[in-house]
């Protein structure tokens, strides 16, 4: 009994350590000056590259939690690490599965055509929810539009978006 509790504790410790190392690596590739700080605008990229899928609103909440009192424009690693560790240990902001994402596209495809036109996608992505910037929109359209048909075959596109790294 005691042995297995020890083992469980050991596993939890090693999981904790691994998660912290993973966060460190992700932080470091964005830390240009190697001084354990990153630009505040890159935090979203780091959080998401670690497999989390927060909304912009949720991301803002995270930022409030860790930003400096004076507006330095930088986030320090020592503040980021404990917050991010907690998120990953608790498995928060896990992306929803592929079929849910597909369903989301189907909701937007009111006529059930099986595809979205460029105009439809553009309208929803810039007018609803947490709107895309012009850059985000163009980048999305460039990869989402089928070069032959000129429309968004969202079933294919969903599988491109959801290929899992792990």
């Amino acid at each position: 009994m005691a042995a297995s509790t020890d083992e469980a504790k050991e596993n939890a410790d090693s999981l904790f350590n691994e998660i912290q190392r993973k966060i460190t690596e992700a932080f470091d590739i964005f830390d240009h000056e190697s001084n354990k700080t990153v630009d505040v605008r890159e935090i979203g990229t780091i959080v998401r590259s670690l497999g989390c899928c927060p909304t912009e609103g949720e991301l803002q909440d995270m930022l409030h939690e860790i930003e400096e009192e004076e507006n330095t424009g930088y986030i320090r690693f020592e503040k980021f690490l404990p917050m991010m560790t907690k998120i990953l240990m608790e498995r928060r902001y896990k992306p929803s599965p592929e079929d849910i994402l597909l369903k989301a596209f189907q909701v937007l495809d009111v006529e059930m055509k099986g595809y979205l036109t460029r105009e439809e996608l553009e309208k929803y992505m810039t007018e609803e929810g947490e709107p895309f910037t012009q850059d985000e929109l163009e980048e999305m359209l460039s990869s989402a539009i089928d070069p032959d048909k000129g429309t968004i075959l969202y079933k294919d596109y969903v599988s491109e978006l959801t290929v899992d790294e792990q």
Binding site: L101, Y124, E128
Partner: peptide
């Protein structure tokens, strides 16, 4: 539609990240 748009947007932002 709003919920769907948010879901797609956050997914896309994760993909780009």
């Amino acid at each position: 539609k709003i919920i769907a748009a948010i879901l797609i947007q956050k997914w896309y932002r994760m993909y780009v990240a």
